[in-house]
Amino acid sequence: MQRRQFLHSCLASSVAASGLAASAVHAQGLTPLRFTLDFRVTSQTSPFFLALSKGYYKDEGLDVSIDVGSGSVASITRVASGAYDLGLGDISSLIEFHAQNPDTPVQALYQYYNRAPFVIIGRKDRGISTDFQSLKGKRVAAAAVESTRRSWPMAARALKTSPELFEWVTTDFSARDNVMVRGDVDAATYFHDSAVSLFARVPEQELAVLEYQKAGLHLYGNAILAGKLVQEKPEAARAFVRASNRALRETLANPDAALAAMRAREPILNLDVERQRWAITRRYLSTAETREVGLGGVQPAVLGRQIDEVAAVFNLARKPAPERLFNTAFLPPMAERQVKA
C-alpha cells in the first residue's frame, strides 16, 4: 500500500513538473520551433548552437529545438511534411523538389552556404590531380543520395566532359573514409569541410582536392528553409533568421564560443578537428559575393542560372521562379548581414 502511494505521488509530481515547465514556456510567451540540421552536429553548424546557448532565440521569443539530419533531401521533406518548422537543405535539391511539387510551401529564407562546398577528393598515388580529367576511368565512392554526387552532371557540363568520366561506387557515408584509406576506390565525394575526418587518416599532401566551383560551377549550397511557418507564423520565421544571422556573424569573427556550444551538445567531438573543419567551412559561408549582397543573400542572376542548370541536367518538367524558391522578405537589414573581409 505504501509502495502504491509512493508511486502515485512520484507520478503526480512528474506530471506537475511537466505542467510547470510547459506553463513556464507559455508564460514567457515563447514560440516553440523545431529545426533540423542537414547532417550530424559539427562545427559546420556551430553558429546555431551558439544562438541556442547564448539565448539569442529566446531573446527573439522562440523556444528552439535542434535535431540532427540525414541529408539535404531528408531536410526538405521533413519541412514539407510539417514535422519540422525549419531545416537546412540544399538549394539544387529544393529546385528539384519545387519542380515535382509546385504547390509546396517550402522556401529558402537565408543562404547559409554562399557556395556549395562540393568536392571530389582523390588519391595522388592513383594518378589523380586537381585536373578533373585525371578522374577518367577511376572509381569514385559516394552515398546513393548525396548532393555532391547528384551535382556531378552539372560540374561535368561546366567542364564540357562526359558525366560518365568515371565509375560510381555506392557506399554509405560512414564507410567513405574507410574505402579511401584501404584503397578500395580511387576517390570519393565530400562536402569539403566534412573531409577533415579523411585528412586525419591520410596526409593532405597525398590527396588531391577537386573543387566544383573551380570547374566554373557556381552553386548556392545549403540554406535555411521554412514551410508553412512562413504563412502561419511569419514573425517567428523572421526572428529565427535574425538570431541565427547574429550568431553566424559572431562565429565568423571568433569561433571559440560557437565551438564550445557545439561541444556542449556533442562532448565527444575533437576541438582541434572541428577548428580545422570550421576554417574550411567559413570559406564557403563568407565569400566575395557575401561582401556585396550580405550574409544570407543571393544574386538573382546567379540563382536564375542555377535553376536553369538544374532544370537542364535533370530534365525538369517545370522551372520554379527564383522569387518562389527564395523569399528575401525574411532577411535582416543589410547592415546586420555584413562581415569584414
Rank of each mutant, 00 (worst) to 15 (best):
83 A>Q: 15
235 E>Y: 04
297 G>R: 01
53 S>V: 04
252 L>K: 14
279 A>E: 04
231 Q>S: 10
221 G>C: 07
163 P>Y: 15
268 I>Y: 08
334 M>W: 09
62 L>T: 03
241 V>D: 03
94 L>R: 03
260 A>R: 03
68 V>Q: 10
4 R>N: 14
156 A>E: 13
71 G>Y: 15
12 A>Y: 15
210 L>I: 15
301 A>M: 08
236 A>R: 02
134 S>H: 10
126 R>M: 13
138 K>S: 11
187 A>P: 08
153 P>F: 09
206 E>G: 06
270 N>S: 10
340 K>C: 05
252 L>A: 07
86 L>P: 00
99 A>D: 06
189 T>K: 01
49 F>Q: 00
261 A>N: 01
17 A>N: 06
325 L>C: 10
276 Q>Y: 14
76 I>K: 01
330 F>M: 11
185 V>W: 05
300 P>E: 12
185 V>R: 04
180 M>I: 11
20 L>V: 05
309 E>N: 14
131 D>Y: 14
49 F>V: 00
216 G>Q: 11
266 E>N: 04
280 I>V: 10
116 A>P: 09
139 R>M: 09
118 F>A: 01
93 S>D: 12
50 L>T: 00
145 V>Q: 14
36 T>G: 03
72 S>P: 01
48 F>G: 00
153 P>I: 10
322 P>F: 05
204 E>Q: 11
158 A>W: 07
205 Q>G: 08
94 L>K: 04
329 A>D: 12
248 L>G: 08
300 P>F: 02
338 Q>W: 09
53 S>Y: 11
160 K>S: 04
192 H>I: 05
132 F>Y: 15
130 T>P: 01
280 I>S: 09
39 F>E: 05
244 S>R: 01
244 S>F: 02
76 I>H: 05
111 Q>L: 05
24 A>W: 10
75 S>L: 02
324 R>H: 00
217 L>V: 14
98 H>N: 10
